[in-house]
């Protein structure tokens, strides 16, 4: 039986990967590398979810994000930038952006240290059963609304891509 130090170390390692990958995704001037880094970022976040005892959410993250959203983004890249190899233009507002991001990040990290948080409770071993109960009991409205939103989004995406004449 491990003490939780190892899991904290693993969490920090995934966090480090996530931060580096997110930085790479935001800073690189090559679109393809940005997307690859984004994929790495999502996988690292999935690892963090797993260590936070959310195994179902972690796998859904991989399924929907890495297997779905990243592929979609790659498709959009390929359909909109065929043959593009030169680096992207960067904005002239980088200094301002850095200041704002620094302020936001600093404030959030400061807030993180300021809190007096309770100790975590015991996690149920079988997360899926509890999740299912939560979804179809207390959070039923959220579940239904999600269904409607997904349908609307799919129809909207189709309409937009098909153009004005249907």
């Amino acid at each position: 039986m491990l003490d939780s130090d190892v899991q904290i170390a693993l969490f920090a390692a995934f966090g480090g990967i996530a931060v580096i990958a997110a930085l790479a995704a935001v800073l690189t001037r090559y679109l393809l590398r940005s997307i690859v880094a984004f994929g790495a970022f999502l996988t690292a976040i999935a690892g963090q979810f797993y260590i936070l005892a959310a195994d179902f959410v972690a796998l859904i993250q991989i399924f929907v994000y890495v297997g779905g959203v990243v592929v979609l983004i790659l498709f959009a890249l390929m359909l909109s930038a065929v043959g593009q190899k030169h680096p992207l233009a960067v904005s002239e507002h980088r200094g301002l952006g850095a200041v704002v991001a620094y302020a936001v990040g600093g404030w959030l990290v400061w807030a993180a240290f300021g809190q007096d948080l309770p100790k975590a409770g015991q996690v149920p071993g079988e997360t899926v059963a509890f999740l299912g109960r939560a979804f179809l009991d207390q959070q039923l409205v959220a579940f239904e609304v999600i269904g409607i939103i997904l349908l609307a989004a799919v129809v909207a995406a189709l309409v937009i891509v098909r153009g004005e004449r249907l």
Binding site: L59, I62, F63, V66, G67, L74, G125
Partner: peptide
Amino acid sequence: NVGILYFLAVPSVTGVGLL
């Protein structure tokens, strides 16, 4: 305890590799 989901989710990364 989410083995079947794992089996579906992890290979879905292959799509990224092909593209």
